[in-house]
């Protein structure tokens, strides 16, 4: 095996926000100067630190290819996936890496996502068939147009970047938030689903879409090009219409 240390002549300074709950101190930045190559992601930089410099550095990661949604963090102040961001774009640094905004810090770059996990089942994130069919009766058919209505919203990987981009969630975490509203919308506009009325209760509530003030940054930072702001604001329209039509016969 050829030794690649000769190639790694350039270095980048990474300042990581460290928080060690057992030490009882406030979070503080710690600087690491590490060698990097053009093909190294921020995640690989963190892995270098953990393997070569400080094994206590804590962060979440898994797939390294922007599909598992584990390595979301604030990179130079912007919510990004660490595996989806190149170190070379920030060289020579210092590059600040912090845990995702608007979530409590568990340790170093790991946040406590309990709030998100607990809200998740409240949106009924599954299809409740409009008409139950036995497998022998065949599949539920869908046209390409029906698929297109929900497809982009189904690309969410629960990475929480949109929550770190949402100041309304940061100011009051009772808000259901962008990601879960996008997923709620994904099921609501699925032609096979029959549980919309149940989900709309949540949409109408104070914690639902009305906490959104159309900042729109959630859609800018989404690594899977979902448009959560669009899901939230389409549901404002739906919520307003149903508020007025409830006075009409047959309205709800």
């Amino acid at each position: 095996m050829p030794d690649d240390t000769a190639v790694r002549t350039r270095t980048i300074a990474i300042e990581v926000l460290r928080y060690q709950p057992d030490e009882g101190a406030e979070p503080r930045f710690e600087r690491f100067d590490i060698p990097y190559t053009d093909d190294m992601s921020v995640l690989q930089g963190l892995q270098y630190i953990k393997d070569q410099v400080d094994a206590s550095l804590t962060y979440r990661w898994s797939c390294r290819m922007a599909i598992c949604g584990s390595c979301g963090m604030m990179i130079a102040g912007i919510p990004k996936l660490a595996c989806h961001t190149f170190l070379r774009d920030y060289a020579p640094g210092p590059l600040r890496v912090e845990p995702l905004n608007h979530f409590p810090i568990e340790r170093d770059l790991v946040v406590d996502m309990t709030d998100f996990i607990e809200k998740f089942p409240t949106i009924t994130p599954w299809i409740e068939p409009k008409e139950a069919k036995k497998p022998s009766e065949g599949e539920y058919l869908q046209t390409p147009e029906q698929l297109e209505r929900f497809e982009q919203f189904s690309h969410c990987i629960n990475c929480l970047l949109c929550y770190a981009a949402c100041p309304q969630y940061g100011l009051d975490d009772k808000f259901l938030g962008p990601g879960l509203t996008a997923l709620l919308h994904r099921y609501n506009v699925d032609s096979r689903d029959g549980a919309k009325d149940k989900r709309m209760e949540l949409v109408h509530s104070e914690e639902g879409v009305w906490s959104c003030t159309a900042v729109g940054y959630c859609s800018e930072v989404c690594p899977k090009l979902v448009d959560p702001a669009n899901a939230v604001n389409q549901n404002k329209t739906a919520s307003a219409i149903s508020w007025f039509t409830r006075f009409l016969p047959g309205g709800k």
């Binding site: 928080y19 709950p21 406030e26 979070p27 905004n101 409590p104 810090i105 406590d112 100041p167």
Partner: peptide
């Protein structure tokens, strides 16, 4: 026990 840290807004 968990001792999470909440950053100010």
């Amino acid at each position: 026990a968990r001792r999470t840290y909440v950053r100010p807004m």
